[in-house]
Design a protein around this nucleic acid. Structure first.
Length: 861
DNA sequence: GGGGGAAGGACCA
DNA sequence: TTCCTGGTCCTTCCCCC
């Protein structure tokens, strides 16, 4: 049992070399640790690590005291509970799925070595002097690994070559690899640029029938891969001796995965490792087992799984980090066998969530369903810089962060109520300060208003001393739910259709349209919101079929064709006449004032669109011919308008400018959805999509050339801020499809790790043909002295606009509540708070979405 | 005592 | 000279009903 008390060596565990990763066996640990210690000692970082180490030690001491107080009786009771739960878990154990975890070997380093063969024989790492992303296997022999600062690595290995990161390149390679993944599982779940989970159960079913249909697939070995790791085994025994002939693979899971890795190697000249197991937890562990360039399979038998778990160190399991490892070690638990034997004790010392997780691990259980990412919970941006003490500078930086964050939020159509400021001082101490607002925000001004107050409190708290910072971040969370967003969706289509049956997929702001688009591509990472998507998309149909019934090869091919058709139609539209297209899209989202006062034809729109329900997704395809420029807002009395795409509020805006702005926004979201957007730098996309003449534009331009607030940053070379992530391979990685790019050396994230397998073309102007026909019909309607309520369709007098607005508000409140109740059938009292929040949302005078409607209504007079 | 916000931390890629 | 960033989930504390 490790002595966790104040032993000097123990305090080092956070800083010392972590050598349990591939390629780092048999190193001279003591020598390496001595160098690391000498180089780090005395630094602020080191001091902070020591402090954290002591905190962990205190936690352990507390835990040990608690353990000493546990009685035999308590332990017995706990054991009974554990046994009961174990029985339940055993009963529900599922071994039927074949889950694969694929991980590219030393990905960034391997890509750089492939492209620069002279690096192959040298110790090299990717990153910068401040942080390394990954290292090759030569460098690992010196103890150089990911997450290590370059300057320490240089001490360990003076000949180390440090190559700057090139994410465009890694993304391009990643796209190639993903193409292969999608052929084995179109629903595969990417975890980062180099890593993914696949469920190949269905693929294996098809493979079984190969002899009757196409037979084992031969792959020609057109090119031999370079040897990236001289000691690595070949991915395919016959590959190494390849004589230019075809390589044939069998129908088993191992053969399928070997084939997949072979194809990756053929296509990219890079090797991958894989794990095959009945669940995700095991597959992940397995992929590390024969790294690099190897694979390992756990067959779907309970006995074999348990045998495998027995000797497995707990640290190898995803989710068990260095703190958990140390706490378990203090209890004498190092491997999973010990874990299962101590479950009763653990259930008394850890929270329910924690010990349930331990129990799952000890039984070799994990998720068997590769689920798409759920809805995003928060969005943030942060920046590290040199010491910054000047308050003015700090406020300026804070505003910049809010600006970037607002852009990202608006791009995804998100609004959140909680604004959190994150600060790291020069001692590496992290503080977060949060404030929850009454209403959801997404604009730079709104976020900054909250963030600057939080910052002020912190600056004042140390005054007259300056606040010495090395990092600042801003986060927005507590996003309003889909139900809460309803009024926004109705803001446009609500005028056109009483029940908004098809409006959901169409009238969401740009970000949401983007989601729908990703979804239709067969690799969506965002669940379609059923309340919004009345017409099932291809992927919806697919996800429905998945798990409940196996898709035949034919069905898959059909789906693929459908998607292809969709893409082609989109790209034809995008390519033929972009001006018209954006105008069309704009037309569909803008209301000709002359059309809104009589919506009696909404029924035709509704019934027509209903006939489309249940048919394929081609109904999403726009029909440019029915769109007319006359739909544009034609009044001249607008004073305050909100762009339906980006949500930007525009004061005293000239109508032509407003229309142009919407066009630009729509074009922008189209650009964001281009098939090539994987490789489009953020800066470029921003230029494409930027609304004109906004105050933020000048800042963006400034920031792309020089931003004085950032002059504290490390030199703005492409490697100024290291992009460091870590994975089981010991590599630090960027989250998959983070789209992290730098503006003047700053990083920001455009979208999370949600990434289509292959991007589809633009659907910024998605709607149904029938919708647009309805629009056309309505636009030709004559004006009258009364207005039709966009919600209830009842004609209302417009003599008193306030009364009319109030009526619309009431209708909306009722509608939203009704829809909320429909989509949230009451379960005890659990829905009450949410209901309250909906009510609050509806009542909220500041609710931008309703305001937006009112503003448009106001323009009618 | 439970719900919910705030703060901080573990862990992941 | 020099030790990242963005996201989720969990725990703990505290306040309020």
């Amino acid at each position: 049992m490790a002595s966790h008390h104040q032993g000097g060596a123990d305090l080092l565990s956070r800083i010392a070399l972590n050598d349990n990763k591939a390629g780092m066996e048999g190193l001279d640990r003591d020598k390496i640790n001595k160098i690391i210690l000498e180089t780090s000692k005395g630094s602020k970082f080191y001091e902070n690590e020591l402090k954290k180490e002591q905190q962990v030690n205190q936690r352990i001491e507390k835990m040990m005291e608690q353990k000493a107080r546990i009685t035999k009786e308590q332990l017995k009771q706990a054991q009974a509970e554990v046994d009961k739960l174990t029985c339940e878990l055993e009963r529900s154990r599922e071994l039927g799925r074949v889950i694969v975890h694929v991980d590219m070997d030393a990905f960034y380093a391997a890509v750089e070595m492939r492209d620069c063969p002279e690096l192959k024989d040298k110790p090299m790492a990717v990153g910068s002097m401040s942080m390394l992303s990954t290292s090759n296997y030569h460098a690992r022999r010196f103890g150089v690994r990911a997450a290590m600062p370059g300057f320490i690595a240089k001490k360990l290995c003076p000949n180390l070559v440090i190559v700057p990161t090139n994410f465009d390149k890694y993304r391009a390679v990643s796209a190639q690899v993903r193409e292969i993944f999608s052929e084995y599982d179109p629903h595969f779940m990417p975890m980062s640029l180099d890593e993914a989970y696949l469920d190949i159960t269905e693929h294996l079913e098809q493979r079984k029938h190969w002899p009757e249909t196409i037979g084992p697939q031969p792959f020609s070995t057109h090119e031999l891969s370079p040897v990236l790791f001289e000691d690595s085994p070949s991915s395919s025994p016959s590959l190494s001796g390849a004589d230019g002939k075809a390589e044939v693979f069998g129908t088993s899971a191992e053969e399928a995965v070997r084939e997949m890795r072979f194809r990756i190697e053929q296509k990219t000249s890079l090797t991958a490792s894989a794990g095959i197991a009945p669940n995700m937890m095991l597959a992940k562990v397995c992929s590390d087992k024969n790294k690099p360039n190897g694979q390992y399979r756990i067959p779907p038998e309970r006995q074999v799984v348990m045998e495998f778990m027995k000797d497995l160190p707990v640290r190898k399991v995803s989710g068990v980090g260095k703190v958990t490892e140390k706490m378990l070690a203090a209890l004498g638990i190092v491997n999973c066998d010990q874990l299962s034997q101590q479950m009763a004790l653990l259930s008394l010392l850890f929270s329910g969530t924690s010990w349930h997780n331990f129990l799952h691990i000890s039984l070799g259980l994990g998720s068997t369903c590769i689920e798409r990412d759920s809805e995003r919970k928060s969005m943030s941006t942060e920046r590290t810089f040199g010491e910054m003490s000047d308050a003015e500078e700090q406020y300026s930086l804070c505003r910049d962060l809010c600006h970037d964050l607002a852009q990202d939020l608006q791009r995804e159509g998100l609004k959140g109520k909680t604004v959190t400021l994150k600060l790291k001082n020069v001692k590496f101490e992290v503080k977060t300060r949060a404030f929850t607002l009454q209403y959801a925000v997404c604009t730079e001004e709104e976020i900054f208003a909250a963030a600057k107050d939080l910052l002020k409190v912190e600056i004042d708290s140390v005054s007259p001393q300056p606040l010495k910072l090395r990092l600042m971040g801003v986060r927005v969370s507590g996003f309003i739910s889909a139900e809460d967003k309803k009024p926004l969706q109705r803001s446009i289509m609500g005028f056109l259709q009483k029940d908004g049956s098809d409006s959901g997929s169409f009238t969401q702001c740009a970000g949401s349209v983007l989601k729908a688009q990703e979804d239709s591509d067969g690799a969506s990472f965002l669940k379609p919101q059923s309340t919004e998507m009345k017409v099932p998309s291809v992927s919806e149909q697919k996800s429905k079929s998945k798990g409940t019934q196996q898709q035949s090869f034919f069905q898959r091919a059909q789906l693929k064709r459908l998607q292809q058709q969709q893409r082609e139609q989109m790209s034809v539209m995008a390519g033929t006449d972009t001006t018209n297209n954006s105008a069309d899209a704009a037309a569909a989202t803008q209301i000709d004032l002359s059309t809104t006062n009589n919506l009696s034809d909404t029924t035709s729109a509704k019934s027509l669109s209903n006939t489309n329900s249940g048919t394929d997704t081609t109904c999403y395809v726009n029909k440019p011919a029915v769109l007319k420029p006359s739909f544009k807002i034609s009044t001249q009395v607008l004073q305050f308008l909100t762009c339906p795409v980006c949500n930007t509020e525009m004061k005293d805006v000239n109508l032509t400018a407003f229309n142009n702005h919407i066009d630009e926004c729509l074009k922008g979201s189209a650009v964001d959805n281009e098939p090539t957007h994987l490789d489009v730098p953020k800066e470029q996309k921003e230029l494409n999509s930027k609304p004109p003449a906004s105050s933020s534009e000048s800042r963006a331009l400034k920031s792309s050339s020089h931003d004085p607030s950032c002059n504290e940053e490390k030199p703005s070379t492409s490697i100024s801020v290291p992009l460091v992530e870590t994975d089981e391979d010991g590599d630090f990685k960027t989250p998959f499809f983070s789209h992290r790019t730098k503006i003047n050396g700053k990083r920001s994230v455009i979208s999370k790790k949600k990434m289509p397998v292959c991007e589809s073309s633009s659907k910024a102007s998605l709607t149904t043909t029938h919708n647009l026909e309805a629009v056309t019909e309505m636009s030709s309607d004559s004006k009258g002295s009364s207005l039709t309520c966009p919600v209830c369709s009842q004609p209302q007098s417009t003599d008193d606009l306030t009364l009319f607005n109030r009526h619309v508000d009431m209708c909306l409140n009722q509608e939203v509540l009704l829809e909320f109740r429909e989509s949230h059938p009451p379960v005890g009292h659990s829905d009450e708070p949410a209901l309250k929040s909906v009510r609050g949302q509806c009542k909220n005078k500041n609710n931008n979405q309703q305001q937006q409607q009112k503003r448009i209504i106001n323009t009618l007079v």
